[in-house]
Write a protein that binds this DNA or RNA. Structure first.
Length: 299
DNA sequence: CCCTGTCAAGTCACG
DNA sequence: CGTGACTTGACAGGG
């Protein structure tokens, strides 16, 4: 199991998510920002590898405005060597890399213009992973999308659009159950219709699921992943105590995490910890999962 | 230097 | 009908 965290490392003191206002766009500003972001991404991956953290989700803001018409800078050519070097590092250490585009990406939107913008944005994500030279196990995980008052039709639209996607994108696409619209069962139905792998978010399943136990559900979800897709990806979080239901916890809940480990034992999967304190909880989860005695004694 | 309103994009629940 | 939440705050102007 490769454990990781999304997008941001709070310990190093750099961010790979530098951006700027659209109004202040210039090619120079964009290239400078992308260079800064790649510098930090490189540092984060290296920091992670040194500590045994082998999964990482790259933030969508790595190249700000990449899919916006304003973005005319040739960042792909400018940084192709740097992408290749970072990707080579990831392959050397067998890192599980993924991305998770923003919520306004809706492949099943009713408005064709929204679908078109979504495809452009998702193609940018595929381009980043291609430039890194990563295989199809480097996934782009999205939610199924909106319901629009008719779940069946909305799911059918997703399946139809999925069939029209550029193979460079389709081979990387995965869908994840969300916390209010599409359950894991819904995602499995969509997967059955078009073959897209399903990322199980265990917290979303707890907040908005059908009550099924995690173990059997993991087995069902795992069957949607073909060998080329890599081990199934699973997102984990726990409820923030006293906060509104569905809010992610600030730090790892040892007992909840231990329950997850017990329920998922013996299965090959890669785990993304969506906890607000990021790498700190990932390190603790890694220690708990591998039975590091120094940590186990404390808890 | 710190504070805070605002930032490309969409949907939906909630008050 | 306005606001917050969503995988993730960061930018930038004003005090």
């Amino acid at each position: 199991m490769r454990i990781g965290y999304p997008c941001i490392n709070r310990a190093i003191g750099c961010t790979a998510n530098h951006t700027f206002r659209l109004a202040s766009y210039s090619d120079g500003r964009l290239l400078r920002t992308v260079g800064d972001n790649l510098d930090c991404l490189e540092r984060v991956l290296s920091w992670n590898v040194d500590r045994g953290i082998l999964s990482f989700r790259i933030g969508s803001g790595l190249v700000p405005f990449a899919s916006h018409p304003v973005c005319t800078a040739p960042w792909q050519e400018e940084f192709s060597d740097r992408f290749a070097a970072i990707g080579a590092f990831a392959r050397k250490h067998a890192l599980r890399i993924s991305m998770h585009p923003d919520q306004f990406n809706l492949l099943n939107a009713k408005d064709p213009a929204i679908v078109e913008r979504t495809v452009t944005e998702l193609m940018y994500h595929a381009e980043v992973l291609d430039l890194l030279g990563l295989g199809p196990d480097a996934k782009i995980q999205v939610h199924v999308g909106g319901v629009y008052g008719d779940r069946e039709s909305a799911m059918a639209r997703f399946v139809e659009t999925h069939g029209t996607l550029d193979p460079r994108l389709r081979r990387r696409l995965a869908i994840e159950n969300d916390d209010g619209r599409y359950t894991a069962r819904d995602c499995l139905a969509v997967s059955g219709a078009c073959g897209v792998p399903v990322v199980l978010d265990v917290f979303h399943h707890a907040v908005h699921g059908d009550g099924r136990l995690i173990g059997p559900l993991l087995d069902e979800v795992a069957s949607t992943w073909k060998p080329a897709d890599g081990p199934p990806m699973v997102d984990y979080a726990s409820q923030a105590p006293g906060r509104r239901r569905g809010t992610h916890a600030e730090s790892l809940d040892d007992e909840d995490f231990a329950r997850f480990l017990a329920a998922s034992a013996g299965r090959d999967l890669d785990l993304m910890l969506e906890i607000k304190d990021k790498e700190a909880s990932a390190l603790r989860a890694l220690a708990l999962a591998t039975g590091d005695p120094r940590v186990l004694k404390v808890s």
